[in-house]
């Protein structure tokens, strides 16, 4: 187990035992190209692929070997950059963190762009509204007074308070899984609230009050219906709905 490369070399010459690790998988991809048609259509691609590969590897195989016009975003391909969030088999996931064997490859694997954002081409969506909501909650440290000559110290407990929400990679999987956001893009969305939470509960930050005020408004946290879609969708395992509820609680306890 410790040397997977060795194992593979062993397995290859032994024909007949396990003929090949490859299985035939169908990718059913939602294609949209405004330069060709105004409608999005499903297109099927078949390939031989190792089920231990990721969905992203399948998309690469299609783009590199079958249809070069397939368009999707990916940068690091290791679940950190947050570029390749897409709707795979009806659930928002990162294509680079989803193994084919985990999503029932005996049926066609559907791949769609994330919902609630303008589709530009194939799986690429316009992320501007998403980042606008992010900007609007002031996702940066705000302090008053002179800058200290040393680092701003913080106790381990104070850091623990917002540890969960520091993990966000801004992939938009949560926001684009939110039914309120699908119907009304004016809602800040889970990702923006998570990143506000990260600073609201930071003991070093002094603009928590302002951020709470922003999220107290018409399109803020009160539009959350606690459907937990965001928590299910988060590829980083952030308890998104819990973070939203904590912001709600902070708003209420602040007033009364």
């Amino acid at each position: 187990m410790a040397t997977p490369t060795l194992e593979k070399e062993d397995a290859k010459p032994e024909a007949g035992f396990a003929d090949s690790p490859y299985i035939t998988v169908t990718f059913r991809i939602r294609r949209f190209n405004p330069e060709v048609s105004a409608d999005a259509v499903w297109e099927d691609f078949q390939m031989e692929i190792d089920p231990k590969e990721r969905v992203l590897d399948g998309l690469h195989k299609i783009k590199w070997e079958q249809d070069g016009t397939l368009t999707f975003r990916r940068s690091c391909a290791h679940g950190i950059c947050g570029s390749d969030a897409m709707r795979i088999n009806g659930k928002n996931r990162l294509a680079c963190k989803t193994l084919i064997k985990d999503i029932n490859p005996s049926k066609p694997i559907t791949v769609e762009p994330i919902k609630g954002l303008t589709v530009l081409k194939d799986l690429v969506v316009d992320m501007d509204p998403f980042f606008q909501a992010y900007r609007d909650v002031m996702p940066f440290l705000v302090t008053t007074g002179n800058e200290p000559t040393r680092e701003r110290l913080q106790s381990a407990e104070d850091r623990e308070r917002f540890d969960d929400t520091t993990k966000c990679i801004l992939c938009a999987a949560c926001t684009s899984s939110c039914p309120v956001f699908w119907n009304d893009g004016q809602y800040f969305g889970p990702a923006a609230i998570v990143n506000a939470h990260r600073f609201i509960f930071d003991s070093r930050d002094e603009a928590g009050e302002q951020r709470l005020e922003i999220l107290n408004d018409k399109d803020g946290v009160w539009r959350c219906r606690t459907t937990f879609n965001c928590t299910d969708a988060c590829p980083r395992g952030i308890e998104v709905t819990k973070a939203i509820q904590e912001v709600k609680r902070a708003l209420i306890t602040r007033r009364f």
Binding site: F32, T118, P129, G185
Partner: peptide
Amino acid sequence: PVIEPPRKRTTKTP
């Protein structure tokens, strides 16, 4: 025309 969602977020801070 690209496929737009309903009520897209405005670029101005509300």
